[in-house]
Nucleic acid binder design. Sequence first.
DNA 1: CGCTACTGCGTCCACTGTTCGCAGTAATGC
DNA 2: GCATTACTGCGAACAGTGGACGCAGTAGCG
Lengths: 242, 242
Amino acid sequence: MDDVHTVIWNRPERAAKGPAPSRTRAEITDAAIAIADAEGIEALSMRRVAQELGTGTASLYRYLASKDDLLDLMLDAVAAEDGSPPALTGDWRTDLRGMAHRSRAAFHRHPWMTSLAAGRPSLGPNSLDAIEHALAALDPLGFDIDVMITIVNTVQAFVRGYAIGELAQQEAVRRSGVGVQQWMDAHAPYLDNVVKSGRHPLLARVIRDAELPHAADSAERGFELGLERLLDGWEANLPARP
Amino acid sequence: MDDVHTVIWNRPERAAKGPAPSRTRAEITDAAIAIADAEGIEALSMRRVAQELGTGTASLYRYLASKDDLLDLMLDAVAAEDGSPPALTGDWRTDLRGMAHRSRAAFHRHPWMTSLAAGRPSLGPNSLDAIEHALAALDPLGFDIDVMITIVNTVQAFVRGYAIGELAQQEAVRRSGVGVQQWMDAHAPYLDNVVKSGRHPLLARVIRDAELPHAADSAERGFELGLERLLDGWEANLPARP
DNA sequence: CGCTACTGCGTCCACTGTTCGCAGTAATGC
DNA sequence: GCATTACTGCGAACAGTGGACGCAGTAGCG
């Protein structure tokens, strides 16, 4: 349609002329997030959003060029949930650790983010704010901008990848529609075969270990351990100041 | 239908009685991978797979309980592409680094994996082989199994998250149906605004930096740097032997 | 006041994953 | 040798999807 305003982030919300729109992008986005939270990402359809808002399905396309746009808006809305990033502490490790934990918490609040993060670069204004904030934490160290962005990138990559792995089983269970116990029961014979075959002795130990009670918070501990190791690695190898 | 063979990995490929099936799961999986490689994951439909194989759509459901099963098979098939994991070198860093690079290469060969990895725990036999191999690389160090699996987990998380971030833009461009240049042109006004607004001074430097020619291999360099930092972190903090 | 550019939306299209039932076939039990 | 059984391939149908089109109604500018 338009030549210059092709990207959602650069498209004005309201037209200059004509009747005022009766909804806002934010209302639509919030409704979509509520549906995805409650019923899963596969239940999120344009019809379902329209129903939630009590409007016609086609009306949504006055606000969004496509469902893809809606998904972009959802991701960026989540990036703003925590409000403005906290003030910098002066210690880059503390600041980056905080960013990592906030990001992981967002994934846990909205597990559908794992599905959307793939194939969708986070270029929304709120995501950019978060990156700027992380860069600011590294700024006092006085390094090249490409070193700084690489550090931020790798931390974000770790958080994203860890959250996806963490939530993968939970999401598979939810999508299957049965309870955790039934899902486990369905998979038990296969894992039993893996253990009994003897060709995966170390994995067998992992599987047995996973049945222990202490495993409850192992995901959280693994995240913290991995994150600290990554930060350790950067701290020990920060390049010399230019 | 069945009580014990509910999980694809534990379901026999061929029935005991009746006519022999005219295809195999592997044929179907390969066809699906070829389609996803060539036309993108959103072009992968059961009808499209059936057409590729010259068979009826409903016939596929003699081999698979659902499309989800097919996606699981695709992921596990990719995990077997490199053949058996190479022999251990005796240096855990070298072995884990190799695993990470092979995994990243698989993501690049099959960008649709980024979409599938979310919400889908990798429990297929080939994925399990890879994990067993990584654990074996750490075994000589003599640590608890939960420490070992945590190290493997964090490395896999980093690779997954980095690959997803790396391929996100490429996938967005592909999905949009236009060329890289047109996609860039569509986003340029927005990024210009970000730079001009002055509220993201560090990001502005990143955006300017990204236009430099050296940025061509920056994704690869970032991956290697981050991976080495993570391995550094583990090496420096390996817990005391039990 | 009229013209223009918008808004809301009913209706339609092509497509999706999956199920049902039927005809054909290979191995088994007797 | 022959009925029985358990499978195979698959056309057709079903409920759902994202999105396009065009029409009626309306708000603001000249």
